[in-house]
Amino acid sequence: MLPPVIAGVDGSAESLAAAEWAAREAARRDLPLRLTHVWNWHPRQDDGEPVTAAQRHQAARVLRQARGRVRAVAPNIRPYDEQMEGPATAALLKAAEESELLVLGSRGLSGVTGFLVGSVAQGVVARATRPVVLVRAGEEPADEHLPAPGGRPSILTGYRDVILGVDLGDPCDTVIAFAFEAARLRGARLRVVHAWQPPSPLGLGPGEIGLVSGPQWAGEWLGFLSAVLQVWRDKYPGVEVAETVVEGRARSALLRAASGASLLVVGRHLTDRPAGPRIGPVTHAAIRPHSRLRSSGGTPIVGCPVAVVPHE
């Protein structure tokens, strides 16, 4: 059996939005969809609490509600469901091992863009060995698509850009492949972003400062980015690619680029650390509300789903 797209559902608005997004993704990938409900999802419940009739009834109701939402957005998808006993993070990590990707909900902030990532979602993102997609509450099918003439929301128009953040100091094939495939499945443009910072004058040799300019550095990085992507352009000739190099911090560049996108793709190292698994600063910025950028008008920047792809 093909590995499924799995959505973690708990009856909340954000988890139902995740189920809908997972259904659309399963349809795009021609994969089965599994809806997973975990007892002890809520932190107030004690780990190891016996499964009661009330819990079983609640789980069945949550899964039934999620199936209804799936049918509404992807009528050709026939999801199957499962109930698992918590702790929630451990159960979802186990489910993720069997998946093509795991989809979880993240609460939107006051109806606007941005993420509020709870301890369960953050723990899964930090430890999963399979891609995890975070979807905010209120995510609608039309949000993935370009607006119709006159600015009206539509699901009949083309997809918005897929955004990929690339660290040219450590470009990872696993993350790049995920982004190219996501763009191919959508028929979307892939916009690849690399942020660079000029070297400190202390790192330059005598007489070199006057020979270096911002445009020269930008040109060098753009050439490097093009070289890294060439093999992927050859592998995915049908994907339109736009390359962007930006002077500044990577987290700021990615958050700005993700405004109006259909999906933001970032990577996370799988390397073990003495302090345990961690989310890198760029990925952390993409999924945490306190790190999100605001435009000059005070509007939050990031609102699209975020795919966190683990890699060696």
Rank of each mutant, 00 (worst) to 15 (best):
M1V: 00
M1F: 07
P3N: 14
S12V: 15
S12F: 15
S12C: 13
S12W: 07
L16W: 08
R29H: 11
P32L: 00
T36I: 03
N40P: 06
Q45I: 13
H57W: 08
R69C: 12
R71F: 03
P75T: 03
E85P: 12
A91Y: 13
L93Y: 12
L93K: 12
A95C: 05
E97S: 05
S99W: 02
S99N: 06
L102C: 04
L104Y: 07
G108N: 07
S110V: 09
S110P: 06
G114L: 09
F115K: 05
L116D: 03
V120R: 05
A121L: 14
A121I: 15
A128I: 13
L134C: 08
A137P: 04
G138A: 10
D143L: 10
E144K: 10
H145I: 01
P147I: 09
A148T: 04
L156I: 01
Y159W: 01
R160I: 06
V162P: 06
L164M: 08
G165S: 12
P171I: 11
C172A: 13
F180H: 07
R184T: 02
L185Q: 03
R189H: 03
A195T: 03
P199N: 01
P199I: 07
P201Y: 09
E208V: 13
L211H: 14
G214R: 13
P215K: 02
W217S: 03
F224N: 15
F224K: 15
F224Y: 15
Q230E: 02
D234C: 01
P237H: 04
V245N: 07
R249A: 09
A250M: 08
R251E: 01
A258Y: 06
S262Y: 08
L263K: 04
L263W: 03
A275K: 00
P281A: 13
P281R: 09
P289Y: 13
S295D: 15
G297P: 04
G303I: 08
G303C: 02
P305G: 05
